[in-house]
């Protein structure tokens, strides 16, 4: 597996000085070529902030305080740090290499211009050599790719349904055949049936076109189904990373277990929904030690004092891609037999 995007030690603050909120703290994440990486967590866990930071779209007062975002381009010899790009390079990097499907299906399209003009915008900016006829032809192709008839090109966003708008957004994301597509809660505003259709279509397109996906959602059951690997975020940190199978079968962080227990499984036997007691932490005053300890059913004394680091899970048979940040997995401390398989 070759990485296409590597996030190293990325930290993001909102505001400066004393009152700064650390929305993302030292996150390491690798997106491999051709895979679907799921990023899950409750509202306010920093998943969208992470996505905005790695594309440098953070609205003020968001500030990237440290780290690197390395992009391993298809035909570039060395990885490039996205955070160090000049404005011109950044503009060309955006959408060419990394496209985003945003969460607000309703507001992501400019209400006063047609679908065609918003699709062709991309070509006018990135492929100035294309003729008007070529642009129109390509836009029509894109719409067909997501199952919308080409005569919708002249429509305005308010004339489309929510599902169609999100399809247009996906078509837009595909316009320049990017290597990476970030999907930030792409189906939150849609009903369950539409959600499924759109995701299935997205995955079909991924097989055809071969891009990598960073899929951000709070709905972990969707991730289990649609992604290859899952990373779970809590209070601005990655607390667990594993292949979807492993995550679903045997997650080791108590928070991941809580998340998985909060959604009904679409397949398999019925089980009662448990949920997670308490509420997400106030990011202005994150609990000491492991930020999850006040809500954690298996917290013990160390958890209050020290922040656990994300470490490769020991004792798993051969699967090196699992890592977790939990003191339960340090046997000397917890007295638990590793893995925390309670």
């Amino acid at each position: 597996m070759t990485p296409v995007l590597e996030i190293r030690d990325l930290s993001v603050d909102y505001g400066q000085g004393e009152g700064a909120v650390h929305a993302v703290s030292s996150v390491n994440l690798v997106l491999n070529r051709g895979e679907v990486l799921g990023l899950a967590g409750e509202s306010g866990s920093g998943k969208s902030t992470l996505a905005y930071a790695m594309t440098r779209l953070l609205p003020p007062p968001g500030i990237i305080t440290g780290g690197e975002v390395l992009h391993h381009g298809r035909d570039k010899p060395a990885p490039v740090d996205v955070l160090g790009l000049s404005p011109k390079q950044l503009r060309s990097f955006r959408w060419n290499d990394i496209a985003i499907v945003f969460q607000g299906a309703m507001n992501s399209l400019n209400p006063v211009s047609t679908v065609a003009s918003q699709l062709e915008d991309i070509y006018r900016a990135h492929r100035p050599e294309m003729s008007r006829a070529q642009r129109t032809k390509r836009s029509a192709e894109l719409l067909r790719l997501v199952g919308i008839s080409a005569d919708r090109l002249g429509s305005y966003p308010h004339q489309l349904s929510g599902g169609m708008r999100q399809r247009v957004m996906i078509a837009m994301a595909l316009a320049l055949d990017p290597e990476i597509i970030i999907m930030d809660e792409p189906t939150t505003a849609l009903d369950v049936v539409m959600q499924r259709q759109i995701l299935e279509q997205m995955m079909r397109l991924r097989e055809e076109l071969g891009f990598s996906v960073l899929f951000i959602t709070h709905d972990i059951s969707l991730l289990v189904e649609f992604s290859d690997r899952i990373a779970i975020m809590y209070a601005g940190r990655i607390v667990e990373q594993a292949a979807s199978e492993d995550m679903y079968r045997a997650s080791s962080h108590p928070y991941s277990k809580g998340l998985l227990g909060s959604f009904p499984a679409l397949h398999g036997p019925r089980r009662p929904l448990t949920g997670i007691p308490g509420s997400p932490p106030d990011m202005r005053s994150v609990p000491s030690g492991c930020p999850f300890h006040p809500r954690c059913p298996s917290a013990f004394d160390v958890c209050e004092r020290e922040i656990p680091v994300l470490e490769k899970l020991s004792g798993t048979n051969g699967d090196s891609s699992r890592s977790v940040a939990c003191w339960l997995n340090t046997p000397s401390l917890s007295g638990h037999p590793g893995v925390g398989a309670t």
Partner: peptide, 13 residues
């Protein structure tokens, strides 16, 4: 507004 963020993300001038 979201569509302005999208326009930025699209790498438009």
């Amino acid at each position: 507004e979201d569509y302005v963020t999208v326009a930025h993300a699209k790498g438009l001038p």
